[in-house]
Design a protein around this nucleic acid. Structure first.
Lengths: 349, 349
DNA sequence: GCAGATCGTCGAAGCGCTTCGACTCGGGGA
DNA sequence: TCCCCGAGTCGAAGCGCTTCGACGATCTGC
């Protein structure tokens, strides 16, 4: 409540009539302190406006109370998601009395080395993990705990968290099946992405397919190449091949707009003739020509949970935490999905 | 090039056959070291993979080599700008061998107190400064240097940086005058913003007006309330009152789309009948119905410069740096501005 | 050639905190 | 009654680094 920047633990100790170590124990709770002493010390801390010196604390305790957030900072389409994510990481970290150091993706492995080797941080939250991520070996060899957002090809022994894409694929189909649709398509990522074996694309497709089988629904998975032209062509081919098609799931953010247009142009009104579910941020879904029912990456939840995981590893060891945590999808119904019209064409043979 | 996390300055010293202090001086350059010794030490550092312990360094030198970036993390419309900004701050900080601690706007004054009092950071970059910003008094009383993005009402004695809005208003008019326009309007922020005396709105208007006078051009400033309806109405009134109007400057990001539509609806084609210049992010300008000539906040430059200012204050004292730094506007011409049609109506009387 | 400056290096004293014994004091269990 | 134990506190030893003063060696200028 007073000055600052110069008051140290010995000042507090003197003011409270105890030894510095006692003050330290009051602060950390690592030894029992009589209620009376504790209150006296706490009062002194407040009156003097004492704040432990972060560096000194880090040196003595080998804990910095800072964690690194490694994130891509180049402009892209996902910005709102990233921001939400960063915000929730910072907020969650604060509830554990930690601060967040911002490390850019571009700093790569050297960046990680730097912040860990210099004991700047106690742990890492690493966003935007690729299938073949160059940082994985390093992360694995690190003596510091880390949590990865997304799943690399080889995830064993790493703590990863992400939306459950299999369940997401299933949820979309469940939703559509419930509305009576009998012939559905998954309009997915560009072909390369599948060829590369990218995890989330494959998992979504798998969930989609198995749920369709479970419901006894006619289902197909179609990659969508980038660009308006490709979208248009994909739609034409699709409608020709599956005349009974009455619903699609779009898992390709940039293609969503073009695809909707293409369907429109092909005479399919949404949702009268065609129901559409998308995997994309709510922003995008809300602002499409017709608001699209969607499942979004739960950025805030991912952020919060990842910090919780990290803190648990820090406090209770790496074994205290599951390797993979998959967040359940939440589908937000909007105007783009409706029951199948009884008079629509019969399901394709 | 080897292990890590446990190699300390004494290890390096032993390996190089010198004393720890010599290693320290090699690292900091604060005393002269013979070329020979320097090389030997540097070699040892490399072979052992030595990284100074950040906490120890901070404790001994009372410099943490970390700076705080205080930014709003709630989703809003400006996200791309914020990100660009954050990215350039981090990058610039790295060139000065500093790291960046992320502090959210929401933490407010307590957040600032915490990171400064605990000596976590050496200085602050504070974004999103309001006219009457509650943090100003605190920032002023701080013993740590700070740089503010934006100008508060009372900026004396604070280091502030932002786009030069006066020059921006002028640049827009210059551009339009050069194209032959003789009657222009500034479509600005909602009335409250002007009433509140918000700095950037006023300054833009001032620049706009004075440049128009200089060019002998008919000019008017019109606030634009939020909402499509308001935009529509504003446009109608404007066109009625200034039949000779052939160009507008829009300084109201969310209103840009609605305004363009309203002009369209009123039969004014852009740019044939009406030239439009906007103050908004490039993204927005590029993706409007017709690409809009625009001046954007130079986020990357602001970020970089703000770090430079901060570093200068840190290294050479607060006097080494100007109170205000105004970045020159850069107008990007796009499809929305064209020469005035000779057959357009005469300038309003 | 010699006083005095300069260069290059070292040793030691902290920076402000945590933490590990050690010590005191009462209160049970035997 | 004696001993042991736990609760509560203190003192001191670092944590790994920077920095100040000191000290020999080498250079300057007369």
């Amino acid at each position: 409540m007073e000055e600052s920047a110069l008051v140290k633990i010995t000042d507090v100790a003197r003011h409270a009539g105890v030894s510095p170590s006692t003050v330290s124990y009051v602060l950390s709770g690592k030894r029992s302190i009589s209620a009376e002493t504790r209150q006296r010390v706490e009062q002194s801390i407040r009156t003097l406006g004492y704040r432990p010196h972060a560096g000194a604390r880090a040196l003595a305790s080998s804990r910095s109370n800072v964690l690194a957030l490694v994130m891509p900072l180049r402009s892209g389409i996902h910005l709102p998601v990233q921001m939400q994510f960063a915000a929730s990481v910072v907020t969650a970290a604060r509830t554990y009395d930690h601060d967040v150091l911002l490390v850019t993706q571009e700093e790569g492995e050297d960046g990680l080395r730097r912040v860990t080797d210099s004991a700047l941080v106690d742990g890492l939250v690493v966003m935007d993990i690729q299938m073949q991520d160059a940082r994985i070996p390093l992360l694995r060899s690190l003596h510091l705990p880390s949590v990865l957002i997304g799943f690399p090809a080889e995830a064993a022994g790493l703590t990863c968290i992400d939306l459950d894409f299999t369940a997401t694929g299933e949820a979309c189909v469940d939703h559509l099946a419930q509305l009576g649709h009998r012939c559905v398509a998954l309009l997915g990522s560009p072909p390369e992405v599948y060829a590369r074996g990218t995890g989330f694309a494959r998992r979504t497709a798998a969930g989609f397919t198995s749920a369709a089988r479970r419901h006894g629904i006619n289902a197909t998975v179609v990659p969508v190449a980038p660009g308006r032209a490709a979208a248009q062509e994909t739609v034409e081919r699709l409608l020709h091949r599956y005349p009974g098609l009455s619903a699609v799931v779009v898992h390709n953010e940039p293609a969503l707009g073009p695809l909707l247009e293409a369907f429109q142009r092909a005479g399919m009104r949404v949702p009268e003739d065609l129901s559409v579910v998308a995997l994309c941020p709510d922003e995008l879904a809300e602002n499409a020509v017709v608001p699209v029912s969607s499942i979004a990456i739960p950025a805030a939840e991912v952020g919060e949970r990842s910090v919780e995981l990290l803190m648990s590893k820090l406090a209770r060891g790496p074994e205290s935490v599951p390797d993979a945590t998959l967040l359940p999808p939440r589908l937000t119904p909007r105007a783009s999905t409706a029951p199948r019209r009884p008079d629509s064409l019969p399901t394709a043979s």
